[in-house]
Amino acid sequence: MRESVFKTLFQWDFQKDEDLTEIAKQHISSLEDEKLREQAYCYIEGIKRTIESLDEIISKYLQNWTLDRLSVTDRNILRLGTYELLYVEDVPIEVTLDEMIELGKTYGTENSGKFINGVLDRIAKGEAPKEKFDM
């Protein structure tokens, strides 16, 4: 599910004039499980609604980088991870970090996993709801 959401965000980053929901249909429709498709669409709608806030938060925690200097892969994994850390109540922080690191290792450079882990860890410590630390 996260991989489909990531692929949607990745493609949207290149086609900002296209509707994110329309792009999502291409990637999410391939998910066999209906619950996962619904969850993926919820993520897409949530990210679409909060994209400016997500980008501001990510930018705040980047060290010696700007959002526009990041690779498209890393930028969109960070958006997905930040959204999940801040707005998805039932996913523990460790799960989000592990899943985003794996996406980074799969789709990014050899350093993406470590970079994503460092940024998301700082975001989690500084921004995640207190309840997520007790999961």
Rank of each mutant, 00 (worst) to 15 (best):
G108S: 10
D33Y: 15
K132R: 10
G81D: 02
Q63F: 14
T96G: 01
S30P: 08
V88E: 08
G81H: 01
L86A: 06
T66F: 13
R2E: 07
E32N: 07
Y83M: 02
I77Y: 03
V91P: 01
L86Y: 04
L78S: 01
D33G: 14
V5N: 00
G118W: 03
Y43C: 02
I23P: 02
L85S: 03
V91K: 07
K130D: 09
E45P: 09
I77D: 01
I123E: 00
A40E: 07
V88M: 10
W65G: 08
P92M: 06
G104T: 01
Y107I: 11
D98I: 12
G118D: 12
A24V: 08
E52G: 14
L31W: 01
I23R: 01
F10A: 03
E84Q: 14
D13W: 11
E34M: 05
G108N: 06
G118T: 11
S29K: 13
A24Q: 03
E94W: 04
N111Q: 12
D134G: 07
E56D: 14
E56M: 12
T73G: 03
Q15T: 09
V88G: 04
D55I: 09
W12S: 05
D19V: 10
G81P: 02
H27D: 09
K60H: 14
R49E: 12
D98K: 11
E3S: 02
P92Q: 10
D68L: 12
N111I: 07
S112G: 12
N111W: 08
L36D: 13
N117E: 14
Y43G: 03
A124R: 02
M135D: 08
T96H: 02
A128V: 11
G81T: 00
T66N: 15
Q11T: 04
D134H: 15
K114A: 14
D13M: 12
L67P: 04
R37Q: 07
T66S: 05
V5F: 06
E3G: 05
L9I: 09
L85A: 02
A40N: 05
E3I: 03
D134F: 15
E84C: 04
L85V: 04
N64W: 14
R69I: 14
I101K: 00
A128P: 09
D98T: 10
D19I: 12
S30N: 04
D90E: 10
Y83A: 03
E45W: 10
R75V: 02
L9G: 02
N117P: 07
E56K: 14
R49A: 13
L103W: 00
Q39V: 12
K105E: 05
T50L: 10
S4P: 04
T82E: 04
L120D: 00
E3M: 00
D19G: 09
W65C: 11
L120G: 02
F133L: 08
A124Y: 06
W65H: 15
T50A: 10
L20V: 13
L20H: 08
L36E: 15
R75P: 03
R75L: 08
V95S: 10
T8D: 01
V72T: 10
I116E: 00
R79V: 07
E3F: 00
L54R: 02
E34Y: 01
L78I: 11
T96K: 01
